[in-house]
Amino acid sequence: MDWTRILINALEASVGLQAVVFALAAIGLNVHFGYTGLLNFGQSGFLAVAAYGLAVTVATFGLPFWLGIVIGLVGAVLLALLLGIPTLRLRADYLAIVTIASSEIIRLVVRSVTFEGTFGGSDGRQNFAAGFYSLNPYPKGNYNIGEFGFPERVMWILTVGWALVGLSCLIVLLLMRSPWGRVLKAIREDEDAVRSLGKNVYSYKMQSLIIGGVLGSLGGFVYALGQASIQPDIFGTDTTFFAYTVLILGGAARVGAPVVGAMIFWVILSLTDNVLNQAIDAGYISSSIINNTQVGQFRFMLVGLLLMILMIFRPQGIFGDRREIALDAR
């Protein structure tokens, strides 16, 4: 077994494209769920709207790259308004139902045969990332430290991706230590109490939904540009629940938690994948017990197990405050 390779893969996963995408998705969810208590089960919908907004603008209509970004962002804001207007006056569970349904509606619409000309059906869209890579300041080549490193295209998307992660964390940090963030946290605790103090709860919930949605949508852009290709099934409910896993691993309502959560999540997936595959290839594990194609599924079981262990021994997540969890038990 090649342990160097395994560790380098894990290291690359910790800063790789998936970690960036899920960090951004979870930062958005953190604003929704962690700070405001909004149960958004359709975060993948925000990613999809951004990714498709960009891809369709460029690939289908041949319009400029920057216009695609603008359309994606506007799409995310509109989606938040569309989801929020009918549901935010109602009890929390209605938002959960509507968001999970709407993200599936978006996925099914973009993969439908009827709109194949626009959205590309189940094959999705390609050839829209040229505008982005033409801005690449890294000269052609591999940027390695030993065996760890990336080619120039990956370097470029990761630079932009991590810059976006940093910027998003900064925005969340500034917002959440302000009186605005205080209102959000109070709404999470009890919205009637906040209303009785003269705050327009509906408006704050809407602002939270929009901001979290837009932050999440950045993950959609990064994914689309990093892969230079999108397919509708990437934006299924799995994506939303991975983002929740990432958030809870890190600890909800902590600024840096989604970032660390995302890194850990993808490192675990990479480690289990590589270790099991290499162990099977080397004959340490008999393929009658588990074979290479089953590893992909099995590693998610391990993540689930890890999450259960974490919830038992550290219910507040890695960064959470134990005192807060203790309050719930009272």
């Binding site: 302000s178 946290k185 109070a186 605790e189 906040v194 807060e324």
Partner: peptide, 30 residues
């Protein structure tokens, strides 16, 4: 309806009306 996961002083601050920092754009600038 005490807001459990806010501190006592944060509970109190929340009560004040007409706070400039409760606007999302101004909130960014301390």
């Amino acid at each position: 309806k005490a807001l459990s996961k806010l501190t006592v002083i944060e509970n109190m601050r929340l009560g004040a009306t007409g706070q400039r920092g409760e606007n999302v754009f101004r909130a960014l600038f301390r």
